[in-house]
Design a binder for these strands. Sequence first.
DNA 1: TATAAATATTATCATTCACTTATATATTGC
DNA 2: GCAATATATAAGTGAATGATAATATTTATA
Lengths: 115, 115
Amino acid sequence: MKGINLEDMSFLLKLISDKTRLTMLAYLKNGEMCVCEFVAVFDLSQPAISQHLKKLRTAGIICERKQGTWVYYRLNPDLPVYISDLIRALPTLIIKKCSCQTSKLPPTPSVKDGV
Amino acid sequence: MKGINLEDMSFLLKLISDKTRLTMLAYLKNGEMCVCEFVAVFDLSQPAISQHLKKLRTAGIICERKQGTWVYYRLNPDLPVYISDLIRALPTLIIKKCSCQTSKLPPTPSVKDGV
DNA sequence: TATAAATATTATCATTCACTTATATATTGC
DNA sequence: GCAATATATAAGTGAATGATAATATTTATA
């Protein structure tokens, strides 16, 4: 996945520059995040969150991992350099508590579990 | 001029990500460029060009230099790092010939003239 | 299998945005 | 001052976009 020409770069930058999606990427700097966590963090409806994530996923910016009913998203490790540089420039955000039934949440496999 | 928070970054990235404006910045990597040159390069009306340049100027991405009837634009040397990095990632474009009366054009002062 | 929870999809709507046309402003040279 | 050139501004329009509400899909569990 490379942003060779201006057309592609324009497309990806426009996709990323939306405030909600840019904030999503800032959160994903820390690692995986569940859809329900995004729903908890933003003052937006669940469908709105879902649609933003779909755009990022379709563009290849993020990857998904399904575990039961939950869907976890993470940054695509193979991003164009100018995109990963941009993400690196984002402030790091703290993840708030999830709105879903956290007691039933499967343990989020951390990096060291080697997913 | 710094893009500290996500709000500012979103604003600037959205502004830059437009294909026409991104292409303008790619041209400006080479140095100054006259408005009439932009008009010659793009398949857009003169007012459309003017409005794009105004957005870039108002946001502090580019600076202007007036010389007679002509207006030259150049990159603001003091851009947020993540913006200048982005511009550096842009392909370098060749400037086509201007549509205005080139015979009357004042000589464009190059970098070595120390404007 | 029925229910609930998490997520995705669809339809619709309001807003934003980039474009065009028309007009205004500014500078140069006669 | 007047005409021509370069650029900017204003008004209006169509398309793209982000939001919501309603509904569908999927999975776990009682």
